[in-house]
């Protein structure tokens, strides 16, 4: 259908695919930036405009590289450096059953399935490869259009619904 190619999930900026196909660079860069950011945040966070500035900064850079949809709770390193929110179904726990035989998306026939790519890339990664197995909690839609770096530093993105926490808590206790 003509409208489907205009889905924002389907956009890929020039050069971004090449970079994502080399996820070991990206995961190292992520690990480094994470340490740097978390180390500097106690100071940076006090600067009033910093948090506001992070939103367009993230939107621009991650938007270009990963077609970031600004969910505000980034899991890129756990999903093979491929943004799960660029899956038209927003699946965060793996591919749906509709993947085409050539590995393309059910919704956008010309687009390689985000999860097929995520799987291949995660196999190349060394630091976060195993995180593909983690069950990702439901997306907190209230964090849409906020900075996931700031949310991470402030621990907002790991605040899970009480029921979800309870279920995980009991499961860990029983094991």
């Amino acid at each position: 259908m003509a409208t489907e190619s205009t889905l924002k999930e389907g956009r890929r900026a020039p050069g971004s695919e090449w970079l994502k196909n080399h996820p070991r660079w990206l995961e190292t860069a992520y690990k480094f930036t994470e340490k740097l950011f978390l180390g500097m945040y106690p100071v940076l966070g006090r600067v009033g405009f910093f948090k506001r500035l992070m939103v367009p900064a993230e939107s621009l850079t991650k938007g270009y590289l990963f077609n970031c949809q600004m969910c505000g709770q980034c899991v890129l390193h756990s999903t093979g450096m491929t943004c799960p929110m660029t899956c038209p179904k927003n699946l965060r726990n793996g591919p749906c059953g509709g993947v085409r035989a050539n590995g393309n998306c059910e919704v956008i026939p010309d687009l390689p399935c985000v999860w097929v790519q995520a799987w291949e890339r995660s196999q190349q990664m060394t630091l976060y490869s195993d995180e593909m197995k983690i069950i990702q909690p439901p997306v907190n839609r209230a964090l849409h259009n906020t900075s996931s770096w700031v949310n991470m530093a402030e621990g907002v993105d790991t605040v899970l619904p009480v029921g979800w926490q309870q279920a995980s808590g009991n499961k860990e206790a029983s094991e």
């Binding site: 179904k89 927003n90 699946l91 965060r92 726990n93 793996g94 749906c96 069950i135 990702q136 909690p137 439901p138 997306v139 839609r141 619904p161 009480v162 029921g163 979800w164 926490q165 309870q166 279920a167 009991n170």
Partner: peptide
């Protein structure tokens, strides 16, 4: 697509085993 199927499963199990809504 507010949930994906894995999250839906987990929530259904949570309602059954923990006896709570997602909100607790």
């Amino acid at each position: 697509f507010d949930f994906d199927s894995v999250q839906l499963l987990r929530v259904a199990r949570m309602m059954r085993d923990e006896g709570v809504f997602l909100s607790g």
